[in-house]
Amino acid sequence: MKLKEDLSRFFSLLADEIYATGQYLRNRRGVLPGAVVQQLFVMGYKSFPIVALITFLVGITISLTSAAQLEMFGADIYLADLIGLAMIQELVPLMTGIMLAGKIGASITAEIATMKVMDEIDALRTMGVVPEKFLMAPRLIAITLVVPLLVAMADTVGVAGGVIVARVALGIPPGVFLREVFTVVTLGDFLTGILKTLVFGWAVVVGAGFKGFFIDRGAEGVGKATTESVVLAISLIIGLDCVFAFVLY
């Protein structure tokens, strides 16, 4: 019963947000001027450093654990294939998505839930503003612009982790390693990684909006909604990733 209601709310909010964003892109009304640019900066500032750090560490870790195995079989150079494909197809989108859930999704939910509790959402509505548009359109547009840059950066940093391990542990020169990466990884792989991460990013933003707008009355409030938002976003990401795996490979 509760689940059915939640699902119908979720999808009607999703439809509202898509409609509102499309409408905004057409006539540029109903959103504060500069809101998109502001969101771009906020999201970039929140996500770039942490995503860079995490993908770099994951790149190093995976490389170190695989290097030992590959060396046993004398297949050292295949570290490049492994890191290139694993990072770009799978780990960067997944890690980036999860970081977006923790950094950006959580803050969107906290902000909207607080606005809801303080009647700011009602106030927007009675001022003739459509909150789903006013608040969500700039965020959806901003995440769409931020993700490709973020993924390109994370791919680079993650592969760089592999380069370092290959050089230090296996004595493979960076030039050789990178040439091998570029022969295995296609432009299509790179673009698919971006597309996957985009879908994860949208899931984070829409899920965060859902938890914010429909915060339970009388519950522990904003803190609870924020935690639930991160859990929801990560579940959505893992679920969608599984769907991608079936569809793509």
């Binding site: 303080m118 009647d119 009602d122 106030a123 509505r125």
Partner: peptide
């Protein structure tokens, strides 16, 4: 909404 103004109990200004 074009015809009304509302003062909410907790003001509800956008922070």
């Amino acid at each position: 909404y074009r015809r009304i103004g509302v003062l909410y109990q907790n003001s509800a200004l956008l922070n």
